[in-house]
Design a protein around this nucleic acid. Structure first.
Length: 466
DNA sequence: AACCAACCCAACCGCATCGGA
DNA sequence: TTCCGATGCGGTTGGGTTGGT
């Protein structure tokens, strides 16, 4: 029985491979006509290329070939050796398992933290992340993320429980005036600093159309106040989102760089926003956990003209105020900002920072009652067709984000993430069995209950799961 | 001991990009 | 300019492993 009797194996999908072959036993099956594309003729004189787990003998052949001829020209391997593997498979095997200097074993806490940081900046750019982790492969990182990290995110768990705290936790004092990356443990020396690799040009994200978000006031979205037209200095509108909302928004921005439309433009006629618009500060939902806030920093949405951008990461608010920095060229000039010199940023870019004091912080409704109480604050938002509160608007944004996430690989990925989040409710019962898994419906770690929220803040819950 | 669900991860696939003919 | 093969990347699959009941 041959999986594909007529042609090259590449036409086959996962269904080509029949179950039942134990891992590592494919060698013995290679002559039995078994399930995994064994080395028999595939028709038209073409040898059937083998699929499935690699054997030690195959590994040896590949290692010998690469040692002799070097990497590359992978299709030649099959031609010049007895290996019945396609070039693609050879390359993958070499890259992920056979090449020297591969690091095997569990990720170290340092690596885990770095992965989290990189993912927050790069999104699912596994290869680029792997470039930052010597000896690790993109596949390894991807698997790691898709299992442990996503699970923890889904469950609202801290990525670094106190018992396995990441090294070099940032001191509280460091957060003042410094971007989040500055607080990170030392990163491996690479060809370019992290900030220099971001933003990723849209065109560099292959096959991933940007999210199409209808034009909408950022203040409607975030439930904040529109800026005063008299204000010459845009004042950030701090918003504390639930972890789920935070991750949704962060993921969207990380991957699309703009939530609004494919050009990043907001129609002035529909936004109803004066210019310049005030920035909005998205506070990390983990702001009271230095390590979590390190991994999932706050960020700000700022506007220049009709264009909105995500800023560099924000440190957690400390000492009754917090600061953030962003690229000045995407903001209208403001005399309020003071110079700051984050060291890892491109020298061509000057950063500025602003102190946000608690009295400036927008109070976000925590529950339905709070929504109603805040009605007055929200009525300034011209959004008659939606809930009168910012919650409804954020909900609407997220919902639309979801609806539009249907036609691309990227969006499919987003949906997958959302579906994982959707499972949150299903996991709640289990979660509550474990002290570390004490979360509410919105991904809030119940350890960071309202008592831990700074005075004047309220958490924005998820109106609906996503 | 048996069963089951969740986890883990190697390997696959499709698609995009690149470079040479 | 177009075609095509090689390569790289990210998403997905499926079977083994592990841990809980």
């Amino acid at each position: 029985m041959v999986a594909h009797s007529g042609g090259s194996y590449t036409g086959g999908g996962p269904n080509d491979t029949l179950p039942g072959l134990p891992k590592g036993s494919s060698s013995s099956s290679s002559t039995t006509g078994g399930s995994r594309g064994v080395g028999v003729e595939g028709g038209m004189g073409k040898p059937m290329l083998k699929k499935g787990p690699w054997t030690a003998a195959e590994d040896a052949i590949l290692v010998e070939y690469v040692t002799k001829h070097g990497e590359g020209n992978w299709n030649a391997v099959q031609k010049n050796t007895s290996l019945s593997r396609c070039g693609k498979s050879c390359r993958l095997r070499w890259t992920n398992h056979l090449r020297p200097n591969l690091r095997k074993g569990s990720f170290t806490p340092e690596e885990e933290l770095l992965i989290i940081q990189l993912h927050s900046q790069l999104g699912n750019k596994w290869a680029r992340m792997a470039a930052q982790l010597p000896g690790r492969t993109d596949n390894e990182i991807k698997n790691y993320w898709n299992t442990r990290i996503k699970r923890r995110i889904r469950q609202g768990l801290p990525l670094y429980p106190s018992s396995e705290m990441a090294p070099s936790p940032p001191s509280q004092g460091q957060s003042q005036g410094q971007g989040q990356v500055q607080q990170a443990p030392p990163l491996p020396q690479t060809e370019e600093p992290l900030h220099q690799r971001q933003p990723v040009p849209h065109t560099a994200i292959r096959g991933r159309p940007q999210l199409q978000i209808p034009t909408r006031s950022i203040f409607q979205v975030l439930g904040g106040h529109p800026p005063s037209s008299q204000s010459s200095s845009p004042s950030p509108t701090p918003v504390l989102l639930s972890p789920q909302s935070y991750h949704q928004l962060k993921t969207s921005f990380t991957n699309s760089m703009s939530l609004f439309d494919h050009t990043g433009q907001i129609s002035p006629s529909t936004s109803g926003l004066p210019s310049p618009h005030s920035p909005a500060a998205i506070i990390s939902p983990y702001y009271n956990d230095p390590n979590m806030a390190l991994a999932f920093p706050g960020f700000a949405l700022v506007a220049a003209g009709n264009q909105y951008h995500q800023t560099s990461p924000l440190p957690s608010p400390t000492g009754g105020a917090f600061q953030f920095s962003f690229l000045p060229q995407i903001l209208s000039p403001s005399p309020v900002y003071a110079a700051s010199t984050p060291t890892e940023l491109p020298s061509s870019q000057m950063y500025i920072q602003q102190v946000v004091k608690p009295e400036h912080i927008l109070q976000e409704p925590h529950d339905h009652e709070a929504k109603l109480e805040n009605h007055g604050d929200m009525t300034t938002n011209p959004s008659p067709s939606h809930s009168c509160s910012g919650i409804g608007l954020l909900e609407d944004l997220l919902e639309q984000t979801e609806h539009q996430a249907v036609s691309s690989n990227y969006n499919h990925s987003l949906q997958t993430q959302n579906s994982l989040l959707n499972n949150n409710n299903n996991n709640l019962q289990k979660d509550q069995e474990c002290p570390l898994k004490s979360t509410d419906d919105n991904g809030w770690n119940t350890h960071m209950g309202s008592d831990n929220v700074p005075e004047g803040w309220q958490k924005l819950r998820n109106p609906k799961p996503f």
